[in-house]
Design a protein around this nucleic acid. Structure first.
Length: 170
DNA sequence: AGCAAGATCGGT
DNA sequence: CCGATCTTGCTG
């Protein structure tokens, strides 16, 4: 298989508010049965650190969110409502828990549908995007114009955090 | 050990 | 708007 330009670990070591919008237009690549599938990322959301009440890390480190406290560039996946896997890319430096939720790519809308169609599950937890043989991101230089607005499904976080325009979408 | 809640989705 | 479905994290 030919890799155009896999994003290096450095890319993910930046602040999530920089990484989340930068991912729009890039390709999420998933290798299944040794066959790479490319899906252009069209919607992302930023979850930013201990202070962000919508971020899973805001209530401290737990077995589930542990990977978020490490260095950027790894995968954070978790099961929601007993049915859907949420795919996230950890960003930022070690000790600063942040992540980008991948909400849509390759025409698959909705974070639960996306993972279901791409076969992403618990086994991807902690996978290194810079070094994995089955999941990574490629930059083809495409930079679509996009919008931004409040994040979805976080009423529990309170008005202040709920209103942050940290959702980016084409 | 028990329980409430959840970064969703599809049907009513 | 409601139920599905089950892991997680908190409480006791």
């Amino acid at each position: 298989m030919e890799e155009v330009s896999r994003l290096p670990a450095d890319f993910f070591m930046n602040d999530v508010l920089e990484v989340a919008p930068a991912l729009i237009g890039m390709d999420l690549v998933i290798c299944r049965d040794n066959v790479p599938g490319r899906f252009m990322i069209t919607e992302t959301e930023a979850y930013r650190g201990l202070e962000d009440k919508a971020c899973h890390a805001s209530r401290g480190e737990t077995p589930r969110n542990r990977v978020m406290f490490g260095k950027g560039g790894r995968i954070y996946v978790y099961l929601i409502y007993g049915m859907y896997w949420m795919l996230n890319f950890v960003t930022g430096e070690e000790g600063n828990p942040q992540a980008v939720l991948i909400r849509a790519a390759g025409g698959y809308g909705g974070p639960g549908i996306l993972t279901r169609e791409l076969g992403i599950d618990r086994s991807f937890y902690g996978e290194d995007l810079a070094d994995s043989g089955r999941i990574w991101v490629e930059d083809r230089g495409i930079r679509p114009s996009f919008r931004q607005g409040p994040r979805i499904g976080i009423d529990y976080a309170g008005e202040f955090w709920k209103n942050k325009p940290w959702r980016y979408y084409i």
